[in-house]
Design a protein around this nucleic acid. Sequence first.
RNA 1: GCCGGUGUGGUGGAAUUGGUAGACGCAGCGGACUCAAAAUCCGCCGGGGGAAACCCUGUGAGGGUUCGAGUCCCUCCACCGGCACCA
Length: 872
Amino acid sequence: MTGERPDPGRPRIFLESVIIVNYQFTAIEKKWQQRWREEKTFSCETGGSKPKFYGLVEFPYPSGAGLHVGHARPYTAMDVVARKKRMDGYNVLFPIGFDAFGLPTENYAIKNHIHPAKVTHDNIENFSRQLHMLGYSFDWDRVVNTTDPSYYKWTQWIFLQMYKHGLAYKATMPVNWCTSCKCVLANEEVVEGVCERCGSPVIRKEKSQWMLKITAYAQRLIDDLDELDFIERVKIQQRNWIGRSTGAEVTFKATTGDDIVVFTTRPDTLFGATYMVLSPEHALLKKWLEAGLLKNAGEVTAYQAAAASKSDLERTELNKEKTGVCLDGVKGVNPVNGKEIPIFISDYVLASYGTGAIMAVPAHDDRDWEFAKKFGCDIVEVVSGGEDVQKAAFTAKDETGILVNSEFLNGLTVKDAIPVITQWLEEKGIGKAKVNYKLRDWVFSRQRYWGEPIPMVWCDKCGWQPLPEDQLPLLLPEVDSYEPTDDGESPLSKMTDWVNTTCPCCGGPARRETDTMPQWAGSSWYFLRYMDPHNDKALASKEALQYWSPVDWYNGGMEHTTLHLLYSRFWHKFLYDIGVVPTKEPYQKRTSHGMILGLNPHSFVNLSEAEQKELMEEHGGEEGAKQFLREKYGEMADHPIVKMSKSLGNVVNPDDVIREFGADTMRVYTMFLGDFEKAAPWQTNAVKGCKRFLDRVWNLATEQAHSGEEYSPANEAAVHKAIKKVSEDIEAMKFNTAIAALMALVNDFYANGASRGDMKALLLLLSPFAPHICEELWEIMGFAAETGSMACQQGWPEYDESKTVAATVQMAVQVGGKVKANIVVPAEASDQEIVDAALAEPKIVKLADGMTLVKSVVVKGRLVSLIFKPKA
RNA sequence: GCCGGUGUGGUGGAAUUGGUAGACGCAGCGGACUCAAAAUCCGCCGGGGGAAACCCUGUGAGGGUUCGAGUCCCUCCACCGGCACCA
């Protein structure tokens, strides 16, 4: 093999007398990408005798910035999995598409006066180019695009089914309003009081909105998690977000005769309820104010107004100091003891949770305690076992607390008292057991242009009417301006030709809904469309849904746990209920990748040695240099690893990496840079280590002679071990150690020489990670001609457990738990033989002088531990 | 405050789940090749002691269990992520 090579397209470069041997990755990668594309190597059919595997990655939002390394990590990982599954003999569906509706495109369109559809089209082109350049084995015949009318027809269809089943409804309520996007946001889209997307303040605004009743599925969304193979932190985060709590609803009477229903998780503390609190928005306040029952009406209305004007941010920021007003003229009555107690209004009670009213038990709730101290309310202990309740609330719910001052509950533990009091309340007809969730219904309309039109029509006579299904898709009309309006209406509202229509019910004049759907709509069911993307009769055929469901493995970002992942589980459950899809859950397995971070160029440790030296000289040592950087760049300078950002100039563009090192190197490095599940920094400096590795593979294959179709004796154990390691690591997403094992194998081959059989195994194991170079070498070494197919079409190599161990093994000998010597013994040696060999080792003989062996522990293949004691 | 996670060389990270800590890379140092550089190849590379064989020490801190602890238990510290007045 030395010297001659079959393909003249890969010349050696002669530079004076030195030979530079490098594989020409640009040409090779292009060649194979083209071939995979032309031969449709990775297209799959629905059905067949092979077992199916559906691997899914989150489809990208085609932004103008193009693909970034943050996409490459999960995509490469799932591509490795998909390629291996094919070699394992599965019929693999590994699709890609574009989640293309959304604000950034719309904003870009507004700024540059280009139609969002054009912007979307161009961005998708660019993304597709980049995805091809990385050699991903997507089925390009199944690409979906959420902005395509043939796609969003079905998004609208699902909405109509929800409407028909009472899960979509219009309601006027205070909603989150982003002051910059001029658009409402779902609760999930508000982060720390600001807009998740643009960071602008979010205020409350009364608006009529389409809502989806996700709360109807709250319990099932919790319960069904148990059967799924999701990583634990995803399950925990979803459970916390849904926020189930059990307790009781209790009806208190007001002195006006009105009922005030409160929700409590601690009905056992009812005897300690010494006051009540209503949220400032509570409906009874309006009634009492209008009836003139409140002597301090001015104070009450002023407080209500102040609470209403607060943004979410202010409300959370001000939560340290509690505020409130005591109602003058109306009191509540504690139903268990008939005592009259004061009623306050305070914004620490939320209108949107429970009943918007609470009974306050300051002795056993921190918030109530704090409020009671400030407003001088009574604090009555009803659970003993804590410290003095005048000094702090005692909130333990376990067995440490015993009920006191509570008549028939006295002497019970908290746990035992809850069912007793709940039953008592039910018998008296003043309360009942109740479950509450933090989850709210999903605010589903957006006052923007670039989204799916909501297929609803308003008729003054007939009310809201769904568009007949045969009129779908309801196309997004062309408009002159995509600018959102300041009055909070969608740009579509100005399109009178489009807005004015006839009522599907009575035929009279009617108006279309002008709000559009949120970005999360299209992504809530896209994985179903991949199963049958060109179907115009249904969102997908029954056969396709039956065959491919559920997604076997879905990898995506943690940031979608309480957004897309929860929404799509909800939609899927609904579709299951109406008989459209065959499974209760969309995804069997969910994993999550860590973020790719960047190095902070302003951090001392990331500077070159020369720069460090210079700074240390200028500023008097390391501490001085660090102090200087801190003053110049702020606290950030202390963090060597940070998020990639344009302002720091540490953003890595995949195009650049591919140009300089090739797609295979990019893929290998992306998988090698750290634990897949954890955040890890991109270190441009370290990329060349992976390039070197691939160069070594290339040189090994092309510069050395290989004979023998079997594994060579010197490498056999190493090859079997590597097959085992790489196979297991891919399944467990431990890609970094899989690559480390392949590097070690190549090092072995360099040391021992490699047979053709050895090389064949190496190329197959490496091919999911570095598919282009492996295909090329597969061809060069003649394997393609022998098998008549590509490396990616071969069976995955198998290993023999018994051959993963060498004939002899080295074992450590410990005395008193410390390693004192090493012995080499046959792999199948018995425990006794191992102990004998250890005792025969000269160093151990020396240590054992004058001692008796009292105990020995043998760990096969690892070590033998000996415990001696002095001879008596 | 609550929930989850992490802490290992100069650096990214390994460690068969209780079994020889630092695999595999990057950086660095030394050598070979070269007029030279790059590339490549070989070697060294936690700290301390020793001429060496070796010895001591070492996984955020402190205790414990064990023949044996990065891994398990208790206490504490630091950082990251999520939720946050949810009654």
